[in-house]
Amino acid sequence: MGPTVLVVDDQPQIREVLKAYLEADGFTVLEAETAARALAVVDAESPEMILLDVGLPDTDGIEVLRQLRALPDPARAGAYVMIVTARSEEIDKLISLAVGADDYVTKPFSPREVVARVKAIMRRDRGPAEPEGLRFVGLEVRPTERELSVDGSAVELSALEFDLLVALAEAPGRVFSRVQLLEKVWGYDFFGDERVVDVHIGNLRRKLSDDATAPRFIRTVRGVGYKFVGERA
Protein backbone atom coordinates (compact mmCIF):
# COMPACT_ATOMS: atom_id res chain seq x y z
CA MET A 1 0.00 0.00 0.00
CA GLY A 2 1.25 3.46 -0.86
CA PRO A 3 1.28 6.66 1.21
CA THR A 4 -2.09 7.70 2.62
CA VAL A 5 -3.80 10.81 1.24
CA LEU A 6 -6.91 12.33 2.83
CA VAL A 7 -9.19 14.13 0.35
CA VAL A 8 -11.40 16.68 2.13
CA ASP A 9 -14.17 18.14 -0.02
CA ASP A 10 -17.94 18.42 0.36
CA GLN A 11 -18.51 17.59 -3.33
CA PRO A 12 -18.62 13.79 -3.86
CA GLN A 13 -17.71 14.05 -7.54
CA ILE A 14 -14.48 15.89 -6.75
CA ARG A 15 -13.55 13.33 -4.10
CA GLU A 16 -14.30 10.50 -6.53
CA VAL A 17 -12.16 11.97 -9.33
CA LEU A 18 -9.19 12.69 -7.06
CA LYS A 19 -9.50 9.28 -5.43
CA ALA A 20 -9.47 7.52 -8.81
CA TYR A 21 -6.38 9.38 -10.04
CA LEU A 22 -4.49 9.02 -6.75
CA GLU A 23 -5.27 5.32 -6.41
CA ALA A 24 -4.13 4.78 -9.99
CA ASP A 25 -0.73 6.10 -8.88
CA GLY A 26 -0.57 3.79 -5.88
CA PHE A 27 -1.80 6.05 -3.09
CA THR A 28 -4.17 4.89 -0.35
CA VAL A 29 -7.05 7.38 -0.30
CA LEU A 30 -9.31 8.38 2.58
CA GLU A 31 -12.24 10.77 2.26
CA ALA A 32 -13.97 13.38 4.40
CA GLU A 33 -16.81 15.73 3.49
CA THR A 34 -16.67 18.05 6.53
CA ALA A 35 -14.08 19.68 8.75
CA ALA A 36 -15.15 17.62 11.76
CA ARG A 37 -14.84 14.37 9.82
CA ALA A 38 -11.46 15.42 8.45
CA LEU A 39 -10.01 16.04 11.91
CA ALA A 40 -11.44 12.72 13.12
CA VAL A 41 -9.78 10.88 10.23
CA VAL A 42 -6.47 12.65 10.91
CA ASP A 43 -6.69 11.55 14.53
CA ALA A 44 -7.47 7.94 13.63
CA GLU A 45 -5.35 7.39 10.52
CA SER A 46 -2.47 9.98 10.52
CA PRO A 47 -2.42 10.50 6.73
CA GLU A 48 0.85 11.70 5.24
CA MET A 49 -0.88 14.12 2.85
CA ILE A 50 -4.15 16.10 2.99
CA LEU A 51 -5.95 17.73 0.06
CA LEU A 52 -8.05 20.29 1.91
CA ASP A 53 -10.91 22.28 0.38
CA VAL A 54 -11.46 25.76 1.80
CA GLY A 55 -15.23 25.88 1.33
CA LEU A 56 -16.39 23.20 3.76
CA PRO A 57 -19.97 23.28 5.09
CA ASP A 58 -19.14 23.37 8.81
CA THR A 59 -15.78 25.15 9.17
CA ASP A 60 -13.53 27.10 6.82
CA GLY A 61 -10.67 24.93 5.54
CA ILE A 62 -8.09 27.48 6.65
CA GLU A 63 -9.36 27.12 10.22
CA VAL A 64 -9.04 23.35 9.86
CA LEU A 65 -5.44 23.89 8.81
CA ARG A 66 -4.83 26.06 11.88
CA GLN A 67 -6.25 23.34 14.13
CA LEU A 68 -4.21 20.69 12.36
CA ARG A 69 -0.93 22.55 12.81
CA ALA A 70 -1.73 23.05 16.51
CA LEU A 71 -2.16 19.32 17.22
CA PRO A 72 0.23 18.02 19.92
CA ASP A 73 1.29 14.96 17.92
CA PRO A 74 4.07 15.97 15.45
CA ALA A 75 3.15 13.16 13.03
CA ARG A 76 -0.40 14.49 12.66
CA ALA A 77 0.45 18.20 12.89
CA GLY A 78 3.24 17.83 10.34
CA ALA A 79 1.20 16.22 7.55
CA TYR A 80 1.67 17.79 4.15
CA VAL A 81 -1.34 19.92 3.18
CA MET A 82 -2.41 21.16 -0.24
CA ILE A 83 -5.22 23.71 -0.12
CA VAL A 84 -7.85 23.20 -2.84
CA THR A 85 -10.26 26.07 -3.38
CA ALA A 86 -12.63 27.72 -5.83
CA ARG A 87 -11.49 31.11 -4.59
CA SER A 88 -8.64 32.70 -6.52
CA GLU A 89 -7.95 35.81 -4.44
CA GLU A 90 -4.25 36.28 -3.66
CA ILE A 91 -5.01 37.01 0.00
CA ASP A 92 -6.54 33.52 0.39
CA LYS A 93 -3.37 31.99 -0.98
CA LEU A 94 -1.10 33.99 1.31
CA ILE A 95 -3.26 33.26 4.38
CA SER A 96 -3.21 29.55 3.58
CA LEU A 97 0.56 29.53 3.22
CA ALA A 98 1.04 31.63 6.33
CA VAL A 99 -1.01 29.17 8.36
CA GLY A 100 1.14 26.31 7.14
CA ALA A 101 -0.07 24.94 3.81
CA ASP A 102 2.57 23.30 1.63
CA ASP A 103 0.89 24.05 -1.68
CA TYR A 104 -2.24 25.63 -3.15
CA VAL A 105 -4.37 24.79 -6.19
CA THR A 106 -7.43 26.61 -7.51
CA LYS A 107 -10.52 25.00 -9.01
CA PRO A 108 -11.05 24.06 -11.75
CA PHE A 109 -7.87 22.00 -11.77
CA SER A 110 -6.34 19.15 -13.71
CA PRO A 111 -6.44 15.95 -11.63
CA ARG A 112 -3.20 14.87 -13.30
CA GLU A 113 -1.51 18.09 -12.19
CA VAL A 114 -2.78 17.64 -8.63
CA VAL A 115 -1.40 14.09 -8.51
CA ALA A 116 1.94 15.24 -9.95
CA ARG A 117 2.21 17.93 -7.31
CA VAL A 118 1.25 15.52 -4.52
CA LYS A 119 3.98 13.14 -5.68
CA ALA A 120 6.50 15.96 -5.88
CA ILE A 121 5.69 17.19 -2.37
CA MET A 122 6.07 13.70 -0.95
CA ARG A 123 9.42 13.22 -2.70
CA ARG A 124 10.94 16.11 -0.80
CA ASP A 125 14.29 15.52 0.79
CA ARG A 126 13.67 15.02 4.50
CA GLY A 127 17.24 16.06 5.29
CA PRO A 128 20.45 14.14 5.98
CA ALA A 129 20.51 11.11 8.24
CA GLU A 130 23.12 12.58 10.57
CA PRO A 131 22.91 11.04 14.04
CA GLU A 132 24.71 14.01 15.57
CA GLY A 133 22.34 16.51 14.00
CA LEU A 134 23.07 20.14 13.22
CA ARG A 135 24.18 22.08 16.29
CA PHE A 136 24.45 25.83 16.58
CA VAL A 137 24.54 28.26 19.46
CA GLY A 138 20.96 28.34 20.75
CA LEU A 139 19.65 25.87 18.16
CA GLU A 140 19.84 22.14 17.51
CA VAL A 141 18.28 20.42 14.50
CA ARG A 142 17.95 16.62 14.46
CA PRO A 143 16.96 15.70 10.88
CA THR A 144 16.68 11.96 11.48
CA GLU A 145 14.18 12.44 14.32
CA ARG A 146 12.76 15.61 12.73
CA GLU A 147 13.14 17.41 16.02
CA LEU A 148 14.21 20.95 16.81
CA SER A 149 15.15 22.75 20.00
CA VAL A 150 15.75 26.45 20.45
CA ASP A 151 17.56 27.61 23.60
CA GLY A 152 16.92 24.16 25.06
CA SER A 153 13.15 24.09 24.42
CA ALA A 154 11.44 21.87 21.84
CA VAL A 155 9.85 23.77 18.94
CA GLU A 156 7.27 22.27 16.59
CA LEU A 157 7.51 23.07 12.88
CA SER A 158 5.39 22.04 9.93
CA ALA A 159 6.98 19.53 7.55
CA LEU A 160 7.79 22.26 5.06
CA GLU A 161 9.20 24.64 7.67
CA PHE A 162 11.48 21.88 8.97
CA ASP A 163 12.71 21.07 5.46
CA LEU A 164 13.34 24.76 4.81
CA LEU A 165 15.36 25.15 8.01
CA VAL A 166 17.45 22.04 7.24
CA ALA A 167 18.15 23.31 3.70
CA LEU A 168 19.52 26.57 5.10
CA ALA A 169 21.31 25.11 8.15
CA GLU A 170 23.12 22.47 6.08
CA ALA A 171 25.02 25.27 4.33
CA PRO A 172 25.74 28.08 6.83
CA GLY A 173 26.77 31.29 5.13
CA ARG A 174 25.56 30.24 1.69
CA VAL A 175 23.07 32.61 0.10
CA PHE A 176 20.03 30.89 -1.41
CA SER A 177 17.78 32.69 -3.85
CA ARG A 178 14.03 32.15 -3.56
CA VAL A 179 14.12 30.05 -6.74
CA GLN A 180 16.89 27.86 -5.33
CA LEU A 181 14.91 27.32 -2.13
CA LEU A 182 11.78 26.46 -4.11
CA GLU A 183 13.74 23.89 -6.10
CA LYS A 184 15.53 22.45 -3.05
CA VAL A 185 12.64 22.36 -0.59
CA TRP A 186 9.48 22.20 -2.71
CA GLY A 187 11.23 19.81 -5.07
CA TYR A 188 9.55 20.88 -8.30
CA ASP A 189 8.86 23.95 -10.44
CA PHE A 190 6.44 25.87 -8.25
CA PHE A 191 3.29 27.08 -10.01
CA GLY A 192 2.95 30.38 -8.22
CA ASP A 193 4.52 33.43 -6.68
CA GLU A 194 8.05 33.22 -5.29
CA ARG A 195 6.72 35.11 -2.25
CA VAL A 196 5.64 31.75 -0.87
CA VAL A 197 9.26 31.49 0.34
CA ASP A 198 8.96 34.82 2.19
CA VAL A 199 5.77 33.66 3.90
CA HIS A 200 7.36 30.45 5.18
CA ILE A 201 10.58 32.21 6.20
CA GLY A 202 8.41 34.61 8.23
CA ASN A 203 6.67 31.68 9.95
CA LEU A 204 10.01 30.00 10.61
CA ARG A 205 11.51 33.13 12.12
CA ARG A 206 8.52 33.58 14.40
CA LYS A 207 8.83 30.03 15.72
CA LEU A 208 12.59 30.41 16.18
CA SER A 209 12.06 33.78 17.94
CA ASP A 210 14.47 35.17 15.38
CA ASP A 211 14.36 38.94 14.87
CA ALA A 212 14.73 39.75 11.16
CA THR A 213 16.40 43.09 12.03
CA ALA A 214 19.04 41.39 14.22
CA PRO A 215 18.97 37.72 13.17
CA ARG A 216 20.62 34.91 15.11
CA PHE A 217 19.75 32.30 12.52
CA ILE A 218 18.26 33.49 9.21
CA ARG A 219 19.38 36.67 7.50
CA THR A 220 17.74 38.35 4.52
CA VAL A 221 20.14 39.17 1.72
CA ARG A 222 18.35 42.07 0.13
CA GLY A 223 17.53 41.58 -3.52
CA VAL A 224 18.81 37.98 -3.50
CA GLY A 225 17.31 35.69 -0.86
CA TYR A 226 18.31 34.23 2.51
CA LYS A 227 21.23 32.64 4.32
CA PHE A 228 21.75 30.83 7.63
CA VAL A 229 24.02 32.75 10.00
CA GLY A 230 23.90 30.65 13.18
CA GLU A 231 27.23 30.02 14.90
CA ARG A 232 28.41 26.41 15.18
CA ALA A 233 28.23 25.07 18.72
Rank of each mutant, 00 (worst) to 15 (best):
G2W: 04
L6Y: 07
V7L: 08
Q11K: 11
V17N: 06
L18Q: 07
K19N: 10
E23V: 06
T28S: 14
V29R: 00
E31K: 07
A32I: 01
A35S: 14
A36L: 13
A40Q: 13
D43R: 09
A44S: 15
A44C: 05
E45N: 09
P47I: 07
E48Q: 14
L51C: 15
D53Y: 07
V54C: 14
V54W: 06
D58E: 09
G61Y: 08
V64C: 14
V64M: 12
L65M: 12
L68Q: 10
A70M: 12
A70N: 10
A70K: 10
P74K: 07
A79Y: 05
Y80G: 12
V81Y: 05
V84W: 00
T85E: 08
S88G: 14
I91M: 10
D92E: 13
S96A: 15
L97W: 10
A98I: 02
V105A: 11
K107N: 09
K107D: 03
K107T: 05
S110F: 08
P111F: 07
E113C: 08
V114W: 05
A120V: 10
A120Q: 03
R123F: 02
A129Q: 14
E130P: 00
E130N: 13
L134C: 11
G138W: 01
G138L: 03
L139T: 08
V141P: 05
R142I: 01
R142S: 06
E145S: 10
R146W: 01
S149L: 12
D151T: 04
G152S: 04
S153Y: 02
S158F: 04
F162V: 06
L168A: 08
L168T: 09
E170W: 00
A171Y: 04
P172R: 00
G173V: 11
V179F: 06
V179S: 13
L182R: 11
L182H: 06
K184Y: 01
F190D: 01
F190I: 06
F191C: 07
E194T: 11
V197Y: 07
H200V: 15
H200Y: 07
I201N: 10
R206Q: 13
D211N: 13
T213Q: 13
P215T: 11
P215E: 08
I218Q: 06
V221I: 11
R222H: 06
V229F: 02
E231T: 11
